[in-house]
Amino acid sequence: MSEVKIKIENLYKIFGPRAKEYTNKVKSGIDKDELLAKYNHVLGLDNINLDIKEQSIQVVMGLSGSGKSTLIRHINRLIEPTEGTVLVDGEDITKLNKADLLEFRRNKTGMVFQRFALFPHHNILDNVQFGLSIKNLDKSESKDKAMYWIEKVGLTGFENKFPNQLSGGMQQRVGLARALAIDPDILLMDEAFSALDPLIRTDMQDQLLDLQKNLKKTIIFITHDLDEALKLGDRIAILNGGKLVQDGNAEEILLNPADEYVSNFVKDVNRIKVLKIGSIMNIDGNMNESNPSVMVDESIENCLPTMLESESGLNVLDNDKNFVGVISKNNIAEILRRSKD
């Protein structure tokens, strides 16, 4: 869990014919708007440094134009960096030659797109098989694999349909199956659920988390939706104007926003729902036998009824029922007060 799978170092991306020349200008502190106004070049990424841990879900969040789609495309080099390195398993993929890059994409990364990007002239089976057929895999083997993933995403019976005969949610399941069929270590999801309506989106999020329990892929998930980020992300990186402004877990982002941009972003989040007991408990307290107990990884919201009934606070237990701390009404009041500011 703690091995770094993808290491992005000093990554710059400037769009325009003379990108290389302007990297130094960006390094000396020129910002996105100024670069565009003065030199007519677009700053995509500005000195990104990010470690993505193996088997974790790394969410990358930001408003449109913040560079998140540009960043994810550097991981399979659909976009060439202007400067910097992207290490995957210690190998610098920015240095791969053409043939090695194709091999890398065929085996290491699967990608899911915002607007599905299915092949309209192929049926579902052939869509899911696409990555396998590119690798010239044996036909019956690739069909077996494709059928397995079609079943996994719940589309059995639809394999002979065409993409435009399916609803948006079903199409994105095909997109997910297509990406998973090549059994990549890394799953790149570019606003994969943003085009779906809210109910379907929640459904897909649950399905993804469910799959991830067994798959243990390294997932990079792009979104502009904070609720989605908090739900899915083991870690959340926030981009603004091509800069990485904060990278942390949900608690860190909510409790210690790095700057005004981030605090604006998280302003309306229901903290009680998102924050876990563990992030606000008092570890110095002593166990009080007469108080009820709650689990450390429960949300504050779930403990509220017990909390309100209790006179002096709650004992917090970890998963092995060991005492790890106490929590009082004051701790919760503090959180509520902070979110009001």
Binding site: L78, F130, I134, I182
Partner: peptide, 26 residues
Amino acid sequence: NKEVLEAADAFGANRMQKLFRVQLPL
């Protein structure tokens, strides 16, 4: 469609595979 082409790229299709499996059929 550029997105469909990008998808072919993302799965490691080379030029000929893109031409014969995606571009010409579409």
